[in-house]
Nucleic acid binder design. Structure first.
Lengths: 135, 135
DNA sequence: CCAACTGTGACGGAGCGTCAATGTAT
DNA sequence: CATACATTGACGCTCCGTCACAGTTG
């Protein structure tokens, strides 16, 4: 929602949008009244459809062709967005987990390294009784 | 899907199920023909509805009251299940991440401990030149 | 002024819930 | 045999896409 990318740039007037989506211009007006899409308006009150709007129209058309009505389409779009969001979150979580894993493994290696150095110094008798790192 | 819990035990004949869900028996038959619900059958071909079936009926009724038709309801039920699954997965991932984190911190503590012991031995001159753990 | 936009109103097909008729099982 | 189940067909209501008309804009 509100991504502000190229996809949201208002481009096509209703006849073009309808042709692109393969539907009647009237159908697009109906969809707007039913709050299925929200095309921008030009200064002269002409509807202007973005690429994202066209995608959405095509999706509704697909659902409609499967016998799903507009109320259902709205809800399905919401749920689909929600699923996409959940998937992104899962992916992000997986990624950060992987990173944390690597970071910790590296940390343990660093600790080992540090103690190894410590031992060498102890062997040479050049170090007093003192732990090398805080805890 | 196919949980096999108490929720799936066939209990109610159509008149009772309809009363519980607050709908007409005929409506339930229609829903079955439209593949919205799949009640079991008794030996004498009588429909028997489970608690899970009643839940599902109530959900469809709620969607229907919002103007969503049956095709849409089916799809929405699928998506809702999918979201629930995704949420469970995320939760599980979060849990296992937390666990792994704890395990690794503990591991690094163990390493530190192990090296600390090593140093003590080195100090006492009772250990040869050898790293305490494999890598 | 023509073309394409805007809106509102109406018509036909499809989906859906309910009622009715008829048959069967307990 | 009476009751509640089963199936099938029909009737109204609503939703939805399309068409038609009238007004406005570029």
């Amino acid at each position: 929602m509100a991504k502000g990318t190229d996809k949201d740039r208002p481009l096509y007037m209703i006849s073009v949008a309808a042709a692109l989506a393969g539907m009647h211009p009237q159908t697009l007006r109906v969809y707007e009244r039913k709050a299925l899409i929200h095309p921008q308006r030009s200064a002269g009150n002409t509807r202007l459809y973005s690429e994202a709007d066209i995608d959405r129209l095509r999706f509704v058309q697909k659902l409609s062709s499967e016998g799903i009505n507009l109320s259902g389409a709205i809800r399905i779009i919401e749920l689909t967005d929600e699923i996409a969001k959940a998937r992104r979150e899962t992916e992000e979580l997986r990624r950060s987990t992987r990173e944390a894993q690597i970071r910790l493994v590296e940390e343990s290696r660093r600790i080992r390294e540090s103690y190894r150095a410590e031992i060498v110094l102890v062997r040479r008798g050049s170090l007093d009784r003192r732990p090398p790192q805080g805890e």
